[in-house]
């Protein structure tokens, strides 16, 4: 196997108040792979996603992260995005007055400009979006509403996947994209994500539950506890967690 798309080496990170959340994460993700990161509340799952995306408010104390061979931690968030790193937010942010489609097109064009490409033609963009809508079983009316404003939980999560489908990232980190969804919405989201699996794309699923994994069949499952990956395995690990809970992790839970 060639160079990993993402290589996290002994990553330590803490909050501004000094509390250490990540205590030596090691993770290698190759193109085409789907990884699931599971773990109890407070184990550091969302912090890992935030640090990878470059959110402020975290201090990296030690370790390195390579993404497509580059030092990820030295890049600005928008640069990481343009390089193909996508984070689906656990709590997508509402931005009143900003049209959903206008936002998505602005984002796509910002990324294209960084690559020296021309802006996408409005008609072409609209056709691409409509195609993806059907895939996610999404209501077209959502395109014309303000970004996430007043969206239901399911609508917000679908909208995240719609953005992913349009932005076509190389590495997608989906932070609890399954939380708070009813079974129909979960199926729609899972179907959307499944359709975005590609040989040149890797997906990291952060989740509490196994039910999403039943539909998405990850290649690797990791268990995060107290800021460290304590177990790694195949799909069977997720099933085991579902049966026994996180209790078998012993101390620290």
């Amino acid at each position: 196997m060639g160079l990993p798309l993402l290589a996290v080496e002994d990553l330590h990170a803490s909050l501004a108040d000094g509390r250490e959340i990540l205590r030596g994460i090691n993770l290698r993700v190759h193109e085409g792979e789907v990884h699931a990161i599971m773990g109890p509340n407070g184990s550091g799952k969302s912090t890992l996603a935030a640090v990878l995306a470059g959110r402020e408010g975290y201090r990296v104390e030690a370790g390195r992260v390579f993404y497509r061979g580059r030092d990820l931690l030295s890049m600005a968030p928008e640069e990481r995005a343009a390089e193909g790193l996508f984070l689906a937010f656990q709590y997508p942010v509402e931005i009143p007055g900003v049209n959903n489609m206008v936002f998505l097109r602005a984002a796509l064009n910002a990324q294209r400009r960084r690559h020296g490409e021309s802006e996408i033609d409005a008609g072409e963009f609209l056709r691409a979006v409509k195609k993806k809508l059907a895939l996610l079983d999404m209501d077209e009316a959502l395109l014309h509403r303000a970004l996430n404003a007043g969206f239901s939980g399911g609508e917000k999560k679908r909208n995240e996947i719609l953005q992913m489908a349009i932005l076509e990232p190389r590495l997608a980190v989906l932070d609890e994209v399954d939380s708070g969804l009813d079974i129909d919405a979960l199926k729609a989201v899972a179907k959307g994500v499944e359709s975005l699996r590609a040989p040149d794309r890797a997906i990291v699923l952060i989740t509490h539950y196994e039910r999403l994994l039943e539909q998405l069949a990850p290649d690797h499952v990791h268990v995060l506890n107290a800021g460290r990956i304590v177990e790694s395995g195949g799909r069977e690990l997720a099933a085991e967690l579902e049966r026994h809970g996180y209790a078998f992790l012993g101390e620290g839970t």
Binding site: A76, V98, F103
Partner: peptide, 27 residues
């Protein structure tokens, strides 16, 4: 909010473009 700015930046918009987008939405 920092959340709004970060959300926009995570999608590829530069900081000032993000601010401008949010302010224009407000107005």
């Amino acid at each position: 909010s920092e959340d709004q700015l970060f959300y926009c930046r995570q999608r590829g918009l530069g900081e000032e473009d993000a601010l401008s987008l949010i302010v224009n939405g407000f107005c």
